[in-house]
Design a protein around this nucleic acid. Structure first.
Lengths: 337, 337
DNA sequence: AATTAGCACTCTCTTCAGAGGACTGCTAAG
DNA sequence: CTTAGCAGTCCTCTGAAGAGAGTGCTAATT
């Protein structure tokens, strides 16, 4: 593809991303100084259409990029755009007041990205069930009530308030918890249910029912009651393509389909940013959308993903830049966690 | 208002709630056996309109209830509807696996109510700043990292992971925390910032910077980073009156206006269920909506509210019944917390 | 050979008038 | 007090006409 044709495609996509209106040859000529007449542009556009980069809603309308057009744009034409300093500082500051609970990180990230990009954003949680337990402790708060603290090998900490038998003395409780902790250290939470029963002897066995419930709680944490955080869905109302309520409903519905989203991101190249455009998405409900996802890491392992969903005419460059910065910062924050 | 007129009003409201279409006299006659002709009903309806209970979108349309009509219906005609057992058990079970963290309660409640009623639901958090601190403890997790546990006089427990100076030994840390705890016990969190500085002496003073940050965290908790939980906004798409995207946007925007919502529910009679219909709401953005709110308690004190928002043609009876059951159950769960 | 100007053509979107339909309000009879 | 009947009102739907935008093609120009 020669330079001018690329330039036409690029300008057309950028204009369409900004306006949402099909772009005609005259518009393109007037808005950007291309140095050639509209007829020439018309010819280029006709070629681009023949090659599948553009589409024609109808004869008398301007052109619109096709999936293939966007794909070419993202892969070939898009230059890495830097973020301005204020924005980078905003992102960094967002993780400064960090708490270690993973849900906080997720919500924070979803809100941050949707605030910056003005697209709805979803953050998928790490699968806790893969994590190993580093330490378990039980802090008595008052008779009948204690806090269960879990430290994972990754450094993340989870806490849950739990009811304990009133007749158990605080010191016994902590001692028993210490016993339990030392014997299940390093066990993947996923295997906990199997591994645990062997440990129930001595004091532990006497309060078997209670400890069983405790393990249940632990497994609940592992099963990630809250697997996803979503923010900024209201942004969709800003885009004319979602002013159709039915379409809006389908797209909103997508955010509730945990398994589908799981399927979408799992089996993806584990690192970096990925862009999925329109028909490339395996779901009918969102085929007029695009999704940009970024993996985030804990140590060197990818543990979760941030998804930005928008109309196909998305500001790909900016979204990619933001996701790069945010996933980097999030990974760093999790490493320290 | 005589019996037949009441009956006409009641049936008309119920039909309109179900269909969303203006109700004509013939429809009313055919659908429900009223034993009189459409002309008679027409006369009754004309009277009801004169008295302000009904409205006429235009001459050749059926009637629609006015705010006054709904108000009369809610205050006079609505009979307490019981919930079926399965539903009550669902509600009770939802709080059974209870954790003590207030945010969990809020999200759980919002989800529960929006699932049952199919209306968007918002839960307001208790103002922590009114609470008093019963106990503060700091649990060392590993070098440089600890969990800050706060027990309020209400019984609620909050936890936050915090960074601690690496050079501090675990035993020193807990001892210092115990010191601090004993001296700020019973202080309303709101006053904490003022009260605290006097306590910084001895060991505490040596690590002043760290403890200052700790207090900051504590105050953050008190200021209720997360004051509201919302669930079920997607339900709005089911109601034809919100198929207009602009209206939808205004209503969704309402959920983000913390201060306005605060204003709406504060200064309300503290107990029980309250219904606000259309124009009775002090916000232009949601004047074609109704809001039903229920207070929930902690002990004997009202600490927060559940809000259900829907079109004016809401299933008031059912929503009220659900909110009564849920707020009761939530209050009970919080009492045990 | 590439570019440009000109023009007929196509297709959508908006506007407008007219028909159809639903319901009311009124009148007069039961 | 109730009912039947009917004229009148007003919305909504439909189809046609007109405006506007943009294309594709052809022929002229560089």
């Amino acid at each position: 593809m020669d330079g001018r044709k690329q330039r036409v495609l690029e300008l057309l996509i950028e204009d369409y991303v900004n306006t949402g209106e099909p772009v005609g040859s005259r518009t393109l000529m007037r808005k950007y100084q291309l140095g050639v007449s509209s007829a020439t542009i018309r010819n280029e556009m006709a070629d681009l259409e023949d090659e599948g980069y553009l589409e024609h809603p109808h004869t008398s309308a301007g052109r619109v990029p096709s999936d293939k057009g966007y794909r070419y744009y993202v892969d070939q034409l898009l230059e890495k755009t830097g973020l301005d300093d204020a924005l980078i500082q905003w992102i960094q500051a967002s993780y400064r007041a960090r708490v270690r609970e993973i849900t906080w990180f997720m919500h924070q990230t979803a809100k941050l990205v949707s605030d910056i990009t003005a697209y709805p954003t979803l953050v998928m949680a790490p699968r806790m069930s893969e994590a190993r337990l580093a330490e378990l402790s039980l802090i008595p708060m008052r008779p009948g009530l204690a806090v269960l603290l879990l430290r994972m090998d990754s450094g993340l900490i989870e806490s849950q308030t739990v009811a304990v038998p009133e007749e158990l003395a605080a010191t016994d409780l902590t001692a028993m918890a210490r016993d339990l902790s030392s014997s299940i250290e390093g066990v993947p939470i996923r295997n906990l249910e199997n591994a645990i029963w062997r440990q129930f002897k001595g004091d532990l066995a006497r309060h078997r029912q209670f400890w069983e419930e405790m393990i249940q709680r632990l497994i609940e944490v592992a099963n990630d009651e809250e697997r996803m955080a979503v923010s900024g869905t209201r942004n969709m109302l800003n885009y004319p393509e979602f002013r159709d309520v039915d379409r809006l409903g389908r797209v909103l519905g997508f955010f509730e389909k945990e398994t589908e989203i799981d399927r979408l991101v799992s089996g993806r190249p584990p690192q970096g940013i990925e862009v999925m455009i329109g028909g490339e998405l395996p779901f009918n409900d969102i085929q007029d959308c695009s999704v940009v996802t970024a993996a985030y890491r804990m140590g060197h392992q990818v543990v979760g993903r941030v998804l930005v969903l928008g109309p196909r005419r998305m500001h790909y460059g900016r979204v990619i830049a933001v996701l790069e910065a945010v996933s980097e910062e999030l990974s760093r924050a999790l490493e320290w966690a």
